[in-house]
Design a protein around this nucleic acid. Structure first.
Length: 134
DNA sequence: GCCAACGTTGGC
DNA sequence: GCCAACGTTGGC
């Protein structure tokens, strides 16, 4: 089982929208690194749901419910989507500031390559984030 | 709203 | 295959 972090701008698609709909088709990714990460996702993997720009915090946990397939929003065969469902909202959101201040998390992709919208997370990092949220 | 960092495109 | 120009992301 692998862990990931997926970013969304709450203006466009927030955690609350996600919960209301009960599932999400993660479309519109147009970056090779992000796409490769999506292709590596397996059903049952967990992803931290992060609000970028506004909020700048990890707000909940999503689970992969469907592995990658052709992105229906484009004809271009290079791009794919995966599907998620919400697992739970964190008791307390974990902010980017908190993550930056924790030296155990200094190697997170979120810090090192902040622009990548779909990123891998180590189990240790995932567990630390969860601990911070309680 | 600004701008640094990064990715992509296209001319050569 | 290099690199300048451009576009986008996202933190501040």
């Amino acid at each position: 089982m692998n862990y990931w972090l997926i970013k969304s701008e709450p203006f466009k698609y927030s955690w609350d929208n996600f919960v209301k709909e009960g599932k999400s088709v993660w479309d519109g990714v147009r970056n090779y690194q992000a796409r490769n990460n999506m292709k590596a996702m397996q059903v049952g993997d967990w992803a931290l749901f992060y609000h970028s720009n506004e909020g700048m915090e990890v707000i909940g946990i999503a689970e992969v419910t469907k592995e990658f397939y052709q992105d229906p929003t484009t004809e271009d065969p290079r791009w794919v989507v995966v599907e998620f469902k919400p697992i739970k909202k964190l008791n307390k959101s974990v902010s980017l500031k908190q993550i930056k201040e924790d030296s155990r998390l200094e190697n997170m992709v979120l810090i090192k390559n902040s622009r990548l919208s779909v990123q891998p997370v180590l189990k240790e990092e995932f567990d630390i984030i969860i601990a911070l949220s309680e």
